[in-house]
Design a protein around this nucleic acid. Structure first.
Length: 918
DNA sequence: CGATCCCGCCACATT
DNA sequence: AATGTGGCGGGATCG
């Protein structure tokens, strides 16, 4: 800002630093740093600490000094230098809120950062001298966008109550977080691209949380498929891939510039306007980037490919400089996405060599397509790094395999942050979410479903039927009461109605609630029938199926969880350390396999994995590379190579994947934990490991293996329109399953319920054998979707076999008639042994095979002609296109993004309002 | 040395 | 014109 300022700062700070320029200024901006800097005292302290800390976050360890707290000092920091800052701040407008912020800040940091920051900070701080100056100078890492994003996310609940709207003041946040506003824009733009926030006004953004995330992702996926789907199929070669993409885009769409997916939010949009400016390229880039992941079979996207693709869209020529710039931007985006636990950094080894890449670890679900299995792993991995944090996941353990396979976290060189983030997020969010969910879920669900669903459906489906929408509402209603809560330890899950996203109810209560619902559902069904025939496609595809598999899912869950949870909001509790351990063994294998298998049932896991690994895996995930697909090919091949077109094969995979991973994604939204806690605890009481800090709730899970940490999950997808599958997991079961899984049962045992969205309604679900809840009948009859699985958890006993049927399957086969119970049984048991391979296989077969195929096909955009899609496609296209095309806009309705520029403010506002309404 | 990406200049947009 | 936004890329750090 001002030179003068700088000088002062410099003096104060004395930062040797890096660049003279920036830092000084920053002081103002970055309170944090300054603080540290400023205050010599703190820094000093830090030093020692740092060292010790480096390894372990825990302060305890360090005998030496103060440690973290001190370190963290940033928060406190105010010291002498503070004055300077104050002055400075006063000088600049920016400073406005900082003071306030600071206060806020601290808490945040404490919660979240502790671990993270600690680790980060220190690098080498020993030098006393240096220290003094810089002290803590936060190394770059400390200042990283990813960390910043985590802090940012920590401030807001992942799943805010619908009723509450949180407005975000950029200035305030910037000050609190101690960064310049510019950085906040980077974060917000990415979040906005995923609809986690929306701009309300000038410095104001509205926090939406992750409620809509799955929808958004779904949309992106669909859009991505249209645009990139085919290409992705071919991923094997980047070049080809890219090339194709480029062409495709061009062909398909002229250029409409990029429109932000966001749009869906509002119709008006548009405006026309122009897109004169650059627009928010960051936003668009972010969406596209996400799309690439969603379309990618491997779920891994290398930076350079992404950069090329993005560049191409915009321009043909790729200057080197331009490329560099894009890459830089992608890093920015990737950092945010990493903080959201949607992706993690990996390295892909290709023929050429190793390349930086990112792997999608978020939910894959929506569409249900593609294999997500990986996703499962990924999340797991990501989280894993964090270690325990992921406890939850851990509990799931089943997943662990991934780790084993992959490399491990520890190795992960690349991103410390990620790890941190991940874990941080996971635990906290997870737990908090769960708890909150119960309560919130209802509300949210109701609202969300209504709104979102409506919106989504409307948009997407508008073509279809309005009716669908209505169903949702119905659901909501029932849901209210019991929704979230999960009282029962046992897991019984009633399913939900077809229409709506189902909700789980745990015990009786829920059941009751459900039942009523059921009727409703049936009604809906009536309506649905129509839907089914016509709509089914949509549903499936988009909606994603969720699966629940015990082991497998775990991973997924984790992912979800983490994702869901944002950072620190809540406490995180769970932790999952145990998981790790457990998971590790068998489950992991299973998961992976499963995933692979999913893709290709027949293919043996082994093969796949290795291949994958070879190719890409470097670090954790192992399989990274684009290449993988081919190799793994078997699976894919079998299925179908081409993503979109091949739908059938793919679909299957998807299913699997979904099952595993899906849960996570959606679940995020809806999980409810709280209820569980008590009950669960009882049930699961085992021991937990304290490894982590889990705060609480999670422990059980950790425990592990034995218990799933999640008590119950509900996944509801409100939105459903498209994708509505919901999964329900019983927490109870899961745990058991999971835990067992590792040792005994491999993967599957988790009970889950999938519920199709209303649209889908028809999907039935699966039930776990164990339980025949009253509900089940209902669902069946209703046929709709709800399939319920129950697993009784009461003991883990039930652990066994669970499996999930897909709705699709059911439907087709015997929708109504089927009893859940019956179904369930058949469904699956996996013996432990089987676990890996078998499990997957089995699952596949039942689940995937049946319906999936059909469904899948429908889903896929490319293939599907369905009306609804038609709509979407437009969008998709638009995305990719470059700026120009407004023509479609109508389709987009919402189109914030597209128009954004011009209309941006206005539109945004509008949108926001609308959203807010939701 | 390449990968990562912080930092903030500065242009364009909005008020 | 002031302020909000955010593209962009130099160049510092990291590994």
């Amino acid at each position: 800002m001002e030179p003068g300022v700088l000088s002062l700062r410099d003096l104060a700070a004395g930062r040797p630093g890096r660049r003279g320029r920036a830092e000084p200024e920053e002081a103002q901006k970055e309170n944090i740093f300054d603080r540290s800097r400023m205050a010599p005292k703190t820094p000093i302290k830090n030093e020692p600490v740092d060292l010790s800390k480096q390894k372990g976050c825990t302060p305890e360890r360090n005998p030496i000094t103060p440690v973290k707290l001190i370190d963290r000092p940033q928060p406190d920091p105010w010291t002498p230098t503070a004055n300077l800052k104050m002055l400075v701040s006063a000088a600049s407008p920016d400073m406005r809120d900082r003071e306030k912020k600071k206060e806020l800040f601290r808490p945040i940091e404490n919660s979240e950062q502790n671990d993270i920051s600690d680790s980060l900070q220190y690098d080498m701080v020993d030098d006393s001298t240096v220290d003094e100056f810089e002290k803590q100078r936060p190394s770059r890492k400390q200042k990283s966008l990813g960390l910043l994003c985590q802090k940012f996310l920590a401030r807001y609940p992942s799943y805010p109550l619908s009723t509450e709207k949180t407005t975000i003041s950029l200035d305030e946040v910037a000050s609190i977080l101690g960064v310049e506003r510019r950085r906040i824009y980077d974060i917000v733009n990415v979040l906005e691209s995923l609809h986690l926030v929306s701009r309300v006004a000038k410095n104001q953004y509205c926090w939406h949380g992750r409620h809509n995330l799955s929808q958004t992702l779904k949309m992106l996926q669909e859009a991505g498929e249209l645009q990139y789907g085919e290409l992705m199929t071919f991923q094997h070669k980047e070049q080809d891939f890219e090339y194709k993409l480029g062409e495709r885009k061009k062909e398909t769409v002229p250029d409409s510039q990029d429109r932000p997916l966001l749009d869906f939010s509002e119709p008006d949009c548009t405006s026309a306007s122009a897109n004169s400016r650059k627009d928010k390229s960051l936003r668009i880039m972010s969406q596209k980037f996400v799309m690439l992941f969603l379309v990618s079979k491997t779920k891994i996207v290398t930076l350079d490919i992404a950069a090329k693709i993005l560049i191409e869209e915009t321009q043909d020529t790729v200057d080197h400089s331009k490329f560099k710039t894009k890459v830089r931007r992608l890093y920015d985006i990737a950092n945010v996405l990493t903080s959201l636990c949607l992706i993690k950094k990996v390295h892909v080894t290709e023929e050429r060599g190793r390349k930086p890449a990112f792997k999608w670890i978020g939910p894959v679900e929506f569409p249900g397509k593609i294999g997500e299995q990986r996703g499962a792993c990924a999340p797991y991995q990501a989280c894993a790094t964090g270690k325990q944090r992921f406890t939850r996941h851990a509990s799931f353990n089943g997943t662990q395999p991934c780790e084993g396979t992959k490399r491990k976290v520890s190795s992960e060189p690349s991103s410390p942050r990620q790890e941190r983030q991940a874990y941080t997020v996971n635990s906290d969010e997870y737990c908090s979410k769960m708890r909150n969910l119960a309560t919130v879920c209802r509300q949210k669900i109701e609202e969300d479903t209504r709104t979102k669903v409506c919106a989504t459906e409307t948009i997407l489906n508008s073509a279809r039927n309005p009716s669908i929408t209505s169903p949702l509402s119905l659901l909501t209603v029932p849901g209210d009461s019991d929704f979230c809560v999960n009282p029962l330890p046992q897991a019984v899950f009633p399913v939900v109605q077809a229409d709506v996203p189902s909700v789980l109810l745990p015990n009786g209560v829920s059941n009751q609630a459900l039942q009523p619902t059921a009727p409703a559902a049936s009604k809906t069904e009536n309506g649905k029938p129509t839907l089914l025939p016509s709509q089914p496609f949509l549903c499936f595809p988009s909606s994603s199926l969720f699966m629940l598999c015990g082991g497998l899912q775990e991973n997924l869950l984790r992912e979800n969880l983490p994702a869901a949870g944002d950072v620190g909001n809540r406490s995180a509790e769970e932790k999952a350390s145990p998981v790790e351990a457990q998971g590790a063994g068998p489950p992991a294998g299973c998961q992976k396999r499963s995933s692979h298998e999913c893709s290709s049932p027949s293919a043996p896991m082994d093969d796949e994995e290795p291949a994958a690994k070879k190719q890409t895996v470097e670090q954790s995930d192992g399989p990274l590379s684009l290449v993988v697909p081919k190799k793994s090919s078997e699976l894919h091949k079998a299925d179908s190579t081409p993503g979109s077109s091949c739908a059938s094969a793919v679909h299957l995979e998807a299913f699997h994947l979904d099952l595993s991973s899906p849960a996570a994604p959606e679940t995020e939204d809806k999980k409810s934990t709280s209820p569980l806690d008590s009950q669960e605890q009882e049930k699961w009481p085992k021991n937990k490991d304290p490894d982590e800090p889990s705060p609480g709730k999670e422990h059980p899970s950790k425990e592990n293996a034995n218990q799933p940490f999640l008590p119950q999950y509900l996944y509801v997808q409100p939105t459903a329109g498209l994708s509505n599958f919901n999964f329900l997991f019983s927490a109870n079961q899961a745990p058991g399953a999971i835990g067992l899984a590792a040792s005994q049962l491999p993967s599957l045992s988790i009970p889950c319920v999938m519920v199709p969205s209303a649209a889908l309604a028809s999907f039935p679900l699966v039930c776990s054998p164990a339980i025949p809840s009253p509900l089940s009948p209902v669902p069946d009859s209703s046929f709709s979707a709800a399939a319920s699985m129950n697993i009784s958890m009461s003991g883990l006993a039930s652990t066994a076999p669970v499996f999930i049927g897909t709705t699709a399957m059911v439907t087709p086969n015997a929708p109504p008639s089927v009893d859940p119970q019956q179904t369930a049984h058949p469904a699956v048991h996996l013996s432990p042994v089987l676990a890996r391979s078998c499990s997957t296989v089995k699952l596949d077969s039942p689940v995937c095979m049946g319906h999936p195929v059909t469904l899948l096909k429908l889903q896929q955009p490319s293939s599907t002609p369905v009306t609804p899609k038609s709509i979407r496609p437009a969008r998709h296209e638009t995305f990719f296109k470059t700026p120009g095309s407004l023509g479609d806009p109508g389709a987009w309705k919402k189109g914030e993004g597209s128009q954004t520029r011009n209309a941006s403010s206005v539109q945004r506002r509008l949108e926001i309002s609308s959203s807010s309404n939701d």
